[in-house]
Design a protein around this nucleic acid. Structure first.
Lengths: 215, 215
DNA sequence: TCACGTTCGTTATATGCTCTAACTCCATCG
DNA sequence: CGATGGAGTTAGAGCATATAACGAACGTGA
């Protein structure tokens, strides 16, 4: 894309190596999960010796943080692109599902079981808010007029610091939270393999949740 | 409870050591997550040297499997006890939430991100079906008469091998799946800390999901 | 053109983990 | 009472993260 940055050759080499490391890391994560990610194995795959990678990532956690950041960024961009294409709330939801199924471990890296004690850096929460913003816009647009207040929406009207800057009404916040948690419920159980024993199509359940929420 | 089994003293000692190992394992998991569980650290805590524990567990995976089994067993018993006390579907759902909040890592060990390649042993899936059975009973009982068929319920009518032995109608199966995924959606995001930034009460969302599903 | 300093990659090392092997010791059982 | 088998030990292989110290390559500036 940007072919001539004012960067030195060394910097460009550096970012390229970092990119290759992350690429291999994604492969490892896709096949063995995030907990099995090994800097050493990546280095050997790249023909380098183990400690060399510590020039590029301070430690294993920083690499994982970078992967989380990339995953968040990818999801935020995917949803934003769909929204820019005029996708409504249902289309955004299906975009989310497609994104999750394309790389289950990437979804689980972001929304799965966290490592206790791991503190997400500030900018990833910013991207998370960006994702929520895109969905919130669609929720506000999809909200039928004269939607009645519910206990949840009145509670959120009093606790909306997380959406303080967003002009959506409390009922849209309630719709967003409900949609988010329901989609995540289906997706996470599906990706975790908890449906594999029972031979039904998770997509049917996903669509049922959509039509239940967006009549 | 059963104070005089026809077991040898050696066997009783063995089961007692196993129990203590698992107790320490739960402590470790609660504070550092399942991926940080260390047989070595447990052995040192118990005043033994590392390899001693391999007399009691073939390997780390077997210990984790045993923990998963115990967690499943605990949940199944808790729900069964509540159901035996006459708890309806809403009460069972709240029982599930209480159980999950009592030990978040225990819930996530069972329903969180799985380790790719890990194959759950047969009897844990049996307990899982037992849990589903308890909830299915309550779903069948809570189902309003003349509940209309939906695309989901008709799909499940044709794909109900997982509930082949259960007499619940397809609409009850649909209710079960919907309830399960919605509750899991709220619980898993709450336990994973994805709500901590936004200062609202997850319980309100949980209750909203309950009233939306059980009018 | 050439010397200098930054950066990169190496090996060596400390530490911790899982897990196997070989050995000792003691309780239990016939 | 003695043989057996289970329990615990240390030693060690193999792999991981991570640091330290060293050598080589590279780009820059005189």
């Amino acid at each position: 894309m940007a072919k001539s940055d004012p960067t030195t050759p060394r910097e460009r080499y550096r970012t390229q190596v970092r990119a290759e490391v992350m690429e291999r890391a994604w492969e490892q994560i896709a096949t063995a999960g995030a907990s099995a990610l090994s800097l050493n194995a990546i280095a050997k795959q790249m023909g380098m010796s183990g400690p060399a990678l510590y020039r590029y990532f301070a430690n294993r956690d920083e690499l994982i943080t970078e992967l989380v950041r990339e995953a968040y960024r990818s999801l935020a961009d995917t949803l934003a692109a769909a929204a820019a294409d005029g996708a409504g709330l249902a289309a955004l939801a299906r975009t989310l599902r497609t994104w999750a199924l394309a790389d289950p471990q990437r979804y689980l890296l972001v929304y799965g079981t966290p490592i206790p004690g791991y503190r997400a850096p500030e900018d990833t929460t910013a991207i998370s808010r960006e994702i929520a913003g895109t969905l919130l816009d669609a929720c506000a647009a999809a909200l039928p007029p004269n939607t009645p207040a519910t206990p949840l929406s009145t509670h959120l009207a009093a606790h909306r610091t997380w959406a303080a800057t967003h002009p959506a009404p409390p009922e849209a916040l309630a719709l967003f939270l409900t949609l988010w948690t329901r989609l995540h419920g289906v997706l996470s159980l599906e990706l975790a393999g908890h449906f594999t024993g029972m031979r039904f199509a998770p997509e049917t359940l996903f669509e049922a949740e959509l039509t239940a929420l967006l009549p």
